[in-house]
């Protein structure tokens, strides 16, 4: 099999994931895009492992490790997203702008947090 097929597929998948990371608003969709990028890397690892006929099968071993790390990452990432959602009432990446210019240390967190958080809490209570 031509090596270019898996390599090109992997590159394209990676760039699709890249687009998703940069363009998606919901943090969980961003995490999905990260998964796509990781899988593109995995495909590359496997393809080159097979191509090189590596005696140690480093590619496959690393793929397994990557999968495990991706699982851990998704667990931590989701925990963070949930915490952000609980605190801010939103998991939209582009609304978390605390580091923007104009957010002095004396100001509160996001300006939309006060109106979003009570809504969330009342809904949660109901």
């Amino acid at each position: 099999m031509h090596l270019a097929y898996p390599a090109v597929l992997s590159a394209l998948l990676f760039c699709v994931g890249l687009y998703g990371v940069l363009a998606r608003r919901n943090a969980i969709l961003v995490l999905m895009s990260v998964e796509l990028m990781l899988n593109a890397v995995n495909l590359n690892l496997v393809a080159f492992d097979v191509w090189l006929r590596d005696a140690l099968h480093a590619g496959q071993a690393l793929t397994l490790f990557t999968i495990a790390i991706a699982a851990a990452e998704i667990g931590i990432g989701l925990a963070i997203v949930l915490m952000v959602y609980r605190n801010r009432g939103s998991s939209d990446v582009d609304r978390l702008r605390d580091t923007a210019e104009g957010h002095g240390p004396g100001e509160g967190p996001d300006t939309d947090a006060p109106e979003a958080a009570p809504a969330h809490t009342t809904e949660a209570a109901a």
Binding site: F14, L22, V93, D94
Partner: peptide
Amino acid sequence: PDADSGNRWVALAVAVASAAALV
């Protein structure tokens, strides 16, 4: 309607450019 952020076009440009370079 707001699944994509305002960064969409920049993201597309970056992704296409990197895809072209990588491929």
